[in-house]
Amino acid sequence: MEVRTIKVFTTVDNINLHTQVVDMSMTYGQQFGPTYLDGADVTKIKPHNSHEGKTFYVLPNDDTLRVEAFEYYHTTDPSFLGRYMSALNHTKKWKYPQVNGLTSIKWADNNCYLATALLTLQQIELKFNPPALQDAYYRARAGEAANFCALILAYCNKTVGELGDVRETMSYLFQHANLDSCKRVLNVVCKTCGQQQTTLKGVEAVMYMGTLSYEQFKKGVQIPCTCGKQATKYLVQQESPFVMMSAPPAQYELKHGTFTCASEYTGNYQCGHYKHITSKETLYCIDGALLTKSSEYKGPITDVFYKENSYTTTIK
């Protein structure tokens, strides 16, 4: 009895394709271990004539594949690729409408935090270190965002349907971005203890939790000093293409032309909904596939993004 075979390709990165001759009487799992086709788990399936010449994702289970996976995804987590594939199996079914010149995501599976993050990423200057993220990001900007969303979920250790947080998501993504040249110098002034300067680099240099107003941050924000008295913390120097200011959701007025974009969060910790506000020729609110415009805006804002380049204080 002759062994019926077909020729397929296996890959971990969709760049390096490895030619395989597979036995049609055995499952993919018996031949390769966990195997995925377009995100779908085909591990328990036997090869079919229609699979001839198709590319299958496999887990990096030998040295060659491990090197290829690390170079593309910059992670050695053995569960990463499987999590990416199972997320992709959902995100490829989502709709990605162009809204006001940006790629958004039609609401499904509690994905409003991903839509808000995706919209924000198209408006701030950011370059990702893992080629996987950078490639998928370019495709997302062009309207094909399924891979990018699935990668975000995998890097953030999230599953489809789980509630997510924009600030946490951005923080994970910033860790995989090139923020080497970003720098922030802060000064804390206390009447009792004097003053202390701190220099922050990388992710810490672009994120701040405690106030939404970048102007206020430049002037000074009140913080408790270690001595128990009130101290003032203010920005001395900022070198970065953008800054992200966050605070627990509270009524906040966004003035046209003073910011790049913002995240609105309605609801409580267990259950809520994100919308995205962007400042173009007027203010726009993007909620999944829905767009509304207004000249002014007041609502429960939790993150505001500002364009920056270089700032030095005039406070002496």
Results as ranks from 00 to 15, higher is better:
N147P: 11
T75L: 06
V166G: 02
K255F: 08
G39S: 14
L163V: 09
V67H: 11
T91P: 03
H18D: 08
G164P: 00
Y269K: 07
V3K: 14
T302C: 07
S50V: 12
T11M: 06
P249Q: 00
T199H: 10
C227H: 01
Q123N: 06
G257T: 05
D77S: 13
S181W: 15
Q270C: 11
P60Y: 07
H273L: 02
T35H: 06
Y36Q: 05
A145K: 01
M24C: 12
Y72D: 10
Y138V: 13
F217T: 05
P248L: 11
A177M: 05
V189C: 10
T11H: 04
D77M: 06
M207K: 06
E204R: 11
Q216T: 09
E52C: 12
G267I: 05
P241Y: 03
T211W: 02
A69L: 13
G257S: 06
N187E: 15
V22G: 10
P34H: 12
D303K: 00
V8L: 10
T169F: 03
L283Q: 01
V99L: 12
M24F: 09
L17K: 13
C271A: 15
M85I: 10
Y57L: 12
T266R: 08
A108D: 08
K93V: 09
Y284E: 08
Q197K: 11
K233A: 13
K233F: 09
C285P: 00
I286F: 07
E253D: 08
V67Y: 07
V67S: 15
R141E: 06
K316Q: 11
P97N: 06
N89Q: 06
S310P: 09
K158H: 05
Q237A: 14
N89G: 12
Y252M: 09
T232G: 02
A132Y: 03
C285W: 04
R66M: 13
I315Y: 11
T76R: 14
H273A: 01
R66D: 09
I124N: 04
L37D: 14
G202W: 02
A117F: 03
L59M: 13
I152M: 13
I105D: 02
T91Y: 03
K93H: 12
S246T: 02
E281Q: 05
N100E: 09
G101Q: 09
Q222K: 15
P249F: 02
P131E: 05
Q31L: 14
K219C: 10
K316S: 11
T43R: 11
Y96A: 02
N129D: 12
G210C: 02
V21D: 13
I223T: 14
V304T: 02
V12N: 13
P249R: 02
K255C: 09
A132D: 02
K95W: 08
K7A: 09
V236T: 07
L153E: 01
K233C: 12
V58Y: 06
K44A: 06
Y137P: 03
L126D: 01
V58W: 06
T313K: 08
D23W: 13
K316C: 14
F217C: 05
G228K: 05
T19V: 15
A140V: 13
D135A: 11
E215D: 12
T226K: 13
I152T: 15
D77N: 09
T27C: 10
E52Y: 11
L290I: 15
N157Y: 10
A262C: 02
A205W: 01
V185E: 05
D109K: 06
V185M: 06
F148Y: 03
G53A: 13
C193D: 01
T312G: 09
T55E: 09
T116Y: 03
F259M: 00
H276L: 05
K92I: 11
H273F: 01
G82K: 07
K158S: 03
G257L: 04
D62S: 12
F80L: 06
T278M: 15
F56C: 08
G272P: 03
N61T: 14
L88K: 06
C227Y: 01
K255N: 08
D303T: 01
A145I: 03
L200C: 10
N110E: 03
Y113D: 02
E125V: 06
Q197G: 07
E253I: 15
A40M: 12
T43E: 15
F148L: 12
L114N: 04
T11G: 06
P97I: 14
I301A: 02
L254T: 00
I45F: 15
C261E: 04
P248K: 14
T314G: 14
L283Y: 02
Y265S: 01
L290K: 13
S279Q: 05
E204Q: 15
A115K: 02
V203G: 07
E144D: 13
A132W: 02
Y284D: 07
L290P: 00
G161H: 04
A115L: 04
L283R: 01
L65H: 10
Y73G: 02
C271Q: 14
D63A: 09
Q197E: 11
T19D: 08
Y73N: 02
D180Q: 12
Q251C: 09
C112M: 04
Y265W: 01
V236Q: 08
R141V: 12
C193Y: 02
P224C: 15
S104C: 09
Q175I: 06
H176P: 01
Q251E: 13
C227I: 00
L186G: 02
L59Q: 15
G39Q: 11
